[in-house]
Amino acid sequence: MIQPAQLQDRSPLGELVSAIAVEARWIIADTAVMSWRNLLRYRRSPELLMFSTLSPVMFVLLFNYVFGGAIPTGDLNYIDYLMPGILVQTTIFSATTTGVGLAEDLQKGMVDRYRSLPMARSAVLGGRVVAETLVSLFVAFLMLGVGLIIGMRFHGGFWPGFSLPFMVAGFAFGFSWIAAFVGASVRNAEGAGSLMFFVVFPLTFLSSAFVPIESMPGWLQWFAYVNPVTNAVDFGRALSQGGPIVANAWPTALWTLGMTFVIGPVAVWRYRKV
């Protein structure tokens, strides 16, 4: 039989410290369990796996071969220009799954069961976010592999180039919290799905991801410049193709931290209020 942990007499300070330690330990353990559950879905649903791996590869090929010849990108080959952009775009789209999945769980009453267990509440959201981030990382490596095969090359050195997929997954991790927030607020899978789509679609396309901003009409350029996706894509491009890294790094870092530590807690709070 499992014995629940004994409550012990301690000094108030010691109690607080140990409570935090216990709490942290369980948050991590529970998050790991929930991540595992979410990753299992990919193994059990070939459909999901196919959509999250095959379609990104398909879009890399389509954009490169269909549009590559028609989109001028200055000194860079189009595939070199495209890869960071399409990586960020794809991983952000896949991060929206977090919100849709969470809304689905809420709809089906799955979450009620989790909430009745003595597990850390943040682990339900955390598990999804972590799982989707791992999937994003995997997909990013896969796409890069395909990109390299069809002619993409790194021109910014080994370590910056190697860090590209991690940076992309990190940004997607931050974005997942927005998706989690939407999921916890909307609580309806279809609704969350279409809401996310209408946010993410313009956000990813109205950026420097696929075409140079200078080729857009003036009123769009303004939006594209302030768009955080543009920051992330430019950062990714600097990593893989050379260019000022620090200048491009800090806006992306700020956005990622902001989404994680501002939107994240709000999402957890919304979820607890359910």
Binding site: F67, A70, I71, P72, E190, S194, F201, F205, L206, F210, V211, P212, S215, M216, P217, L220
Partner: peptide, 27 residues
């Protein structure tokens, strides 16, 4: 939902390609 995607789907593509890609591809 079906109606909306029939109405807005083509517009999305129209706007995306005209404004976002149009400047680059249009040459």
């Amino acid at each position: 939902e079906m109606l909306l995607s029939t109405i807005f789907g083509p517009l999305m593509f129209l706007f995306l390609f005209t404004y976002v890609f149009g400047g680059a591809i249009g040459r």
